[in-house]
């Protein structure tokens, strides 16, 4: 177990380096001169020159990368925004909790919906309930989150005036310049984003859980459980569901990790200042340090969550040997 974790962590380091190199190369394939962006429109060539030197842009590529990596590893600094010289660290540390709130809340919501419906459908395939669920799944997968988001805003938020449709409120209380804050405001502002975010995934998960449970119910060991005289409830709960949940756990880890890098559509529609929102903003303004920062943060999340899921997997499936 310990050796397995160490090996996985070493691999994580390799992956991390690969991600930083790729992200860093992005600075050079994009046809803009960062020095000009930073120095501003009215800068003289000399000023641009000066800025380029400050940003290490006049040094060879490997020196620049070394500098970037050293800043990242030693000073835990992702650099500074080209636009307003704000530190990327502070941007990410403000945006990450927003995205995390969206993703984890959404995940809880979609699991709450998908697990019971998926199991129900699997136990009564081709029944009326199953057919209704499958039509719902198709609709959920087909509907784009942007469309769903705006429709919910329009109907629930604007027409019925039940929920706020824009913005984010701090969970801990209003910070300066904000009119809302505290758990209640936070919750109400997150409801529509959660629902929007959860619909697509809930649809995918209903389908996956349904097929996983149906497959497991055909397993020989489920037949064995019935042959032993176990009541149907025990057969399903003890023998089928635990095995059926294995692929769901894997998927959940992957999906959460990916979404933590920024749930772009939902964040944009509801004006949530999360990672996806910042990534899009900085793409439009060529603010490379912020783009690189969000990409690196997202990849760390993916690496971390894969590790957690692998460890969790070993707990539920004894066949996985962590050696």
């Amino acid at each position: 177990m310990v050796r397995y974790v160490i090996r996985r962590l070493l691999w994580a380091v390799v992956l991390f380096l690969a991600v930083t190199i790729l992200t860093f190369l992005m600075f050079f394939v994009i046809p803009v001169d960062p020095a000009k962006l930073v120095a501003g429109k009215a800068a003289t060539p000399a000023q641009v020159q000066h800025v380029a030197h400050e940003l290490y842009l006049d040094r060879p590529l490997y020196v620049q990368y070394g500098h970037y990596l050293k800043e990242l590893v030693w000073n835990h600094s992702l650099g500074y925004s080209y636009g307003n010289r704000q530190s990327v660290n502070s941007i990410i540390s403000q945006a990450a909790p927003v995205t995390a709130a969206l993703v984890f809340g959404g995940a809880i919501l979609w699991l709450l919906v998908a697990i019971p419906i998926g199991i129900y459908s699997a136990l009564r395939p081709r029944s009326k309930g199953d057919r209704v669920a499958m039509v719902g799944v198709l609709a959920g997968i087909s509907a784009h989150p942007v469309w769903v988001g705006y429709m919910l805003s329009l109907i629930v938020g604007y027409k019925l005036n039940l929920l706020p449709i824009q913005g984010y409120c701090n969970l801990r209380g209003a910070s300066e310049g904000q009119t809302c804050g505290g758990p209640y405001d936070w919750f109400m502002h997150m409801l529509l984003p959660w629902i929007t975010f959860a619909i697509l995934y809930a649809a995918f998960y209903v389908r996956m859980i349904r097929s996983s449970v149906m497959e497991t119910l055909n397993e020989d060991y489920v037949r064995t459980a019935r042959a032993k005289g176990a009541p149907e409830r025990t057969v399903i709960r003890r023998h089928a569901l635990r095995n059926a949940m294995l692929p769901v756990v894997t998927m959940l880890g992957m999906d959460i990790a990916l979404a933590l890098g920024g749930a772009v559509f939902v964040e944009i529609v509801f004006g949530l200042p999360g990672l996806g929102y910042w990534a899009i903003q900085s793409v439009f303004s060529f603010d490379l340090p912020i783009i690189a920062g969000t990409v690196i943060f997202a990849s760390i999340m993916v690496i971390l969550f894969n590790l957690i899921i692998d460890l969790l997997y070993a707990v539920i499936d004894p066949r996985i040997r962590l050696a």
Partner: peptide, 12 residues
């Protein structure tokens, strides 16, 4: 008892 002992016992 069944034909395939490899799959007839619950793996977990």
């Amino acid at each position: 008892i069944f034909q395939d002992p490899m799959t007839s016992l619950n793996p977990v």
